[in-house]
Write a protein that binds this DNA or RNA. Structure first.
Lengths: 238, 238
DNA sequence: TATTAATTCGAACGGGCGTTCGAAAAAGTT
DNA sequence: AACTTTTTCGAACGCCCGTTCGAATTAATA
């Protein structure tokens, strides 16, 4: 009898060597579940739905997870972990606040676009867990929020003689709102490329919708990182 | 046997004269349901929850609505109707695009802050209806979105010699994202007043997070309208 | 091949869900 | 008062949910 990915421990997955058949199938179940959760919502999705879509019997699912809650948790935790991990890596590139802010936006959006289902589940089902599982994910969220807020504060500190400064809490959540809302409208396979999305949202957030009275100040978005490991999952194609 | 508020017709409620006991109790049920939907989510809320909170027997609820779905629909339709109605009124004040945009933001946010539960249910349960009820609410949403997009286009048209213009779709949904996300963090009874919220988000959206190279350009938010009818409902205090 | 361990699943259980029914109670009318 | 209409609700129905159990099957090991 195998144990599912250890919960509530810093290093949930053994990345080093063996990506066993068990791991692969669990991941496949999680990917499928994420897709269905994103489509119909967590509470409207039944274990029978997931059973049908994965072609694993209803009882069989419980060999890979111990509850429906845990499925949601594993999806959210895994997904959030990757976003944070990837961001922290990339932030080591530079110490310049504005550049770091651009990286935040680029990272969040390109990851979101590459994992719409999982990220929608992360954003939209934020309150669907309870107890320890909720606390664990909420902790990661707070960590992420603090990091971004700190970067915004650095940007603000850099700006000289600014008139009444924007409230940092508002600015932080406005940024997240702008970015997380995309699951309500953005289609990564549509006309608007991820690059254009990132570019537009970066310019909008940094310089606003009005064209200022000042000069042009061209603002490229952060250049996208090499397209490695953009999917949340290890197996196959994201 | 009374008919519940007529569905799918432009004028759902008879505003003219009688606000009968039936109407009042239905409204009370809707208000309570909205609060619970906002707290636990639509699908996790049971008719028994609503029965307990309203002190109307389980069966008794079905004298006022014909299904749980209809409760959600009535909340969403009513709420959306008010936002639109109020916005259209206020937009007649001015033809100046930027001023109109400020009005959009002021209207949306102050209404949101005054009706957090209902607006959360509107934003967060956008896909919880199906069929005709879904179509009806989605129609209003499209109408609203188009109106805002049009105003943004007008603002953009006014601006001379702008460098690569921002994509209108991105700009529109970014605005909604920024505004609608507040149900995830904003507490109308906290330190940050609605006025400050509106002011900060308006400045952020119009001029961006960076302080431009240009001059100060002081930007007041649209002045709030007289505080009439800010609640979605007719009875008592919102 | 024999033995053990990992994996799969049909069938069922207990419980909670949305909804209905018909009769009782209350309010309105004459 | 007698009668009609509006409003209330206890009790139940049928359905689907998440989960479990134990036996059957398959893979790994020796």
């Amino acid at each position: 009898m195998r144990l599912p990915l250890a919960m509530l421990t810093p290093m949930a997955v053994n990345f080093s060597s063996d990506f066993t058949r068990y791991d692969q199938k669990l991941e496949f179940i999680l990917r499928t579940a994420a897709r269905i959760f994103a489509e119909k919502g967590y509470h409207s999705t039944t274990m029978r739905d997931i059973s049908r879509a994965t072609k694993v019997s209803l009882a069989g699912l419980y060999y890979y997870c111990k509850s429906k809650d845990e499925l949601l948790f594993l999806i959210q935790d895994n997904c959030f972990g990757r976003v944070l991990e990837r961001l922290e890596e990339r932030l080591q590139e530079t110490a310049e606040p504005v550049a770091r802010l651009r990286l935040v936006i680029e990272n969040h959006l390109s990851f979101f676009a590459a994992n719409m289902a999982e990220m929608k589940v992360l954003s939209h089902e934020a309150d669907s867990l309870a107890g320890e599982m909720y606390a664990h994910v909420a902790g990661k969220k707070q960590q992420y929020t603090r990091l971004v807020r700190r970067i915004l504060a650095d940007v603000q500190a850099e700006q000289k003689l600014a008139r009444p400064k924007l409230d940092l809490t508002v600015a932080t959540y406005a940024l997240f709102g702008m970015m997380n809302w995309i699951y309500n409208w953005y289609d990564p396979r549509g006309k608007l490329s991820v690059r254009d999305l990132v570019d537009n949202l970066t310019r909008l957030y940094l310089s606003g919708f009005l064209v200022g009275p000042g000069a042009a100040e061209p603002q490229a978005a952060a250049r996208p990182a090499k397209a490695e490991r953009l999917s949340v999952w290890r197996g196959a194609e994201g």
